[in-house]
Design a protein around this nucleic acid. Sequence first.
DNA 1: AGTGCTAGTCTCTTTTTGAGACCAACAACC
DNA 2: GGTTGTTGGTCTCAAAAAGAGACTAGCACT
Lengths: 135, 135
Amino acid sequence: MDNAARVTTLAGEPCDMSNWDAGNCPVRDVMNQIAGKWSTLILELLAQRPYRFGELRRLVPDISQRMLTQTLRDLQRDGYIDRQVFPTKPPSVEYSMTELGHSLFEPLSKVLAWAGDNHAAVKAARVKFDASELG
Amino acid sequence: MDNAARVTTLAGEPCDMSNWDAGNCPVRDVMNQIAGKWSTLILELLAQRPYRFGELRRLVPDISQRMLTQTLRDLQRDGYIDRQVFPTKPPSVEYSMTELGHSLFEPLSKVLAWAGDNHAAVKAARVKFDASELG
DNA sequence: AGTGCTAGTCTCTTTTTGAGACCAACAACC
DNA sequence: GGTTGTTGGTCTCAAAAAGAGACTAGCACT
């Protein structure tokens, strides 16, 4: 009943906000996975080439095995990466990016590039904000 | 000492992974804010036009006031949005997107558009994954 | 016989998030 | 002049998520 209850997103898709749950709004449903603390990092690595579990763990030193397992499974569930088990001894598991994953990573890499280019500006904004908080 | 300890990101910036903490790696430092559950939603709204606190709360029905306050303060701290207090009675607060915010939103909106375009494919992948889990 | 590698899982603790009450100042209504 | 509503928050407590680290099984190498 709010006259602003219906809003058009920049994606061009109307998004009924009075009925906004995670499964209904594409932005929330898709982004809630990508937005995980480790997801973009893993996607960035797998966009280059396939990696094995242990490699990823070593490349991202401060992720726990538990969260690496979970992040990989979530990304696999959404169709961004593939999991392939090789019957070596001990068995090894290789993760690789799917076509869907690559198509997501194309726009996503632009955001990552922005982050690299504007990291200094963001850090400067933080310093300024924190200084004004003290006064 | 790992021969893969140094990796080049697609952003073109070398990222020393043996020294990878949140403050050192631009991707992690910047993305960890954007990746919040509510951040992209708020950015999407503020990219259209300025909004007041109460408007945002009504537009995103299932965010708690606590998280809206925190998300807005985090986005403001990183320099993406501006907070302006008007001395009306009761005082009103308007949030608007800064230039930095708009420059971030340009690539980010592409990802959001991808989410809208590929929501069906992601949901299909989930159904397939969940089905194969049961078997 | 002992050590190490694989890709995880299980448990416990700490951090983050969510739900909801509470706040002060003023305006409008009755 | 007392009640109600509106503003943009904060505070507390419960629930959910994340981090730390021990533990597993099967096999290879020494």
